[in-house]
Amino acid sequence: MPISPNQGSTGGGADVTLTGTHLANATAVLFGAKSATITANTATSVSVVAPSGAGVVDTTVSTAAGTSDPEPFYYIPPPVIVGVSPTSGPVAGGATITVTGRGLATTTSVAFGATVVTPTVVSDSQLTVVSPAHAAGVVALVVTARGGTATASVTFTVVGAPTVSGFTPLTGLPAGGTLVDITGTGLSTATGVTFGGVQAVFAALSSTRVAAIAPTHSLGAVSIVVTTTGGSVTAPGTFLYLLG
């Protein structure tokens, strides 16, 4: 007697259908020792709402003619979210987010606020999901699996595109080492700063400031590009490498 689905949350509530023959007028459906609520019944099927439980239990259907052979039903605990990385992404979406935890193997969806997307399950302890397009702001990240739902302890921040209004000083030595103060907006999630395509050591000081150490570079004028989880922006003007 097939049962579908054959797993559900320890808290109960799963809609389960058992199929077979001579099932009309079922008097009881048991999950272990607990009775399920019958919601529909025909000669070939019984639909029920699973009660709460734990582990693996025998499921049986009883009619006036007797009781069916047992079918196993597997209770799954709710998922647990341990980590989310990164914790921010652009308003246009497209960022690959890794969620780690426990009980993630049966994950069916991940919600970013009210926007629901389908994840890629890597293992019971990890899944990846591509962030959807969303208005800038802070949203809750919620994982839904067969065992229930889990909300990440950290929120996900949807970040608008950064801006750069200027930087100082405007020049530096080819050997590098000049500390450059970059100002703008939306800079707190900076992930990279380049000078003429060369990666610089940097630190995001606030949403309006990033400090970067100009890397070694040949003589000439180069563009400074700041990349954040909200996107990339080229600073106005150029930084000039010249001899001292």
Rank of each mutant, 00 (worst) to 15 (best):
S123E: 12
L127P: 00
G101I: 03
L104Y: 03
D124A: 09
V122W: 04
Q126A: 14
V121M: 06
T106M: 00
A92N: 13
T118V: 13
V121H: 03
G103P: 00
V91K: 15
V122K: 01
I97R: 00
T115S: 11
P90H: 06
V99T: 04
V110R: 05
G94F: 11
G89K: 00
T128H: 08
V122A: 06
P119E: 06
S88F: 09
T107F: 05
A95E: 14
D124V: 00
L104N: 03
V110Q: 03
I97F: 02
T115K: 10
T128Q: 14
S125C: 03
P119C: 10
A133K: 11
F112T: 07
V99F: 03
G93S: 09
G101N: 09
T100P: 10
Q126G: 07
S125Q: 13
V117Q: 11
T115Q: 08
V99G: 01
V121Q: 05
A135Q: 13
T106D: 02
V121I: 12
P119H: 00
S88D: 13
S109L: 04
I97S: 02
S131E: 06
V91T: 15
T120N: 06
T100K: 12
L127D: 01
A114L: 08
A111M: 12
A133I: 04
L127H: 02
T107E: 05
I97M: 07
T128R: 11
G93K: 10
G94V: 14
S131V: 08
S125N: 12
S88N: 15
G93Y: 12
